[in-house]
């Protein structure tokens, strides 16, 4: 079930990656070979098998509702690409 270049472009859009013009074919071919490997999964009948999303199938441990964090904005924003007036700056967000 080989992918089309359009499908690869759709995945890239969803993942916010840009595939440079000219490498689309190469990317698609490599992904195809990965999907060939992954398609081996379809060889097994798993009817009735419960999916396992976690190695330890335990219930969640809950945290008590208490404030434990203090303000560390200055430290966090010291490593921000662009921050001002306590805000992270990004290209204009349009709703």
């Amino acid at each position: 079930m080989p992918l089309s270049n359009e499908e690869v472009a759709r995945l890239a859009r969803l993942a916010r990656l840009s595939i440079p013009d000219g490498s689309a074919d190469a990317t698609r071919k490599q992904l195809d070979s990965i999907f060939v490997l992954m398609t081996q999964l379809q060889s097994v009948d798993t009817t009735g098998i419960e999916p396992m999303s976690h190695p330890q199938e335990l219930p969640a441990r809950l945290r008590e509702d208490a404030v434990t964090e203090t303000n560390r904005r200055a430290t966090f924003q010291a490593i921000a690409p662009q921050a001002e007036a306590g805000l992270y700056l990004v290209p204009k967000v349009i709703e």
């Binding site: 916010r16 966090f76 690409p81 290209p91 204009k92 967000v93």
Partner: peptide, 21 residues
């Protein structure tokens, strides 16, 4: 947005995401 690499130039928000990543 908050840390790590951000592209130097971009057209808009989506472009900033795609280029940076």
């Amino acid at each position: 947005v908050r840390y790590g690499h951000r592209a130097a130039e971009y057209a808009d928000l989506v472009d900033m995401y795609c280029k940076s990543r």
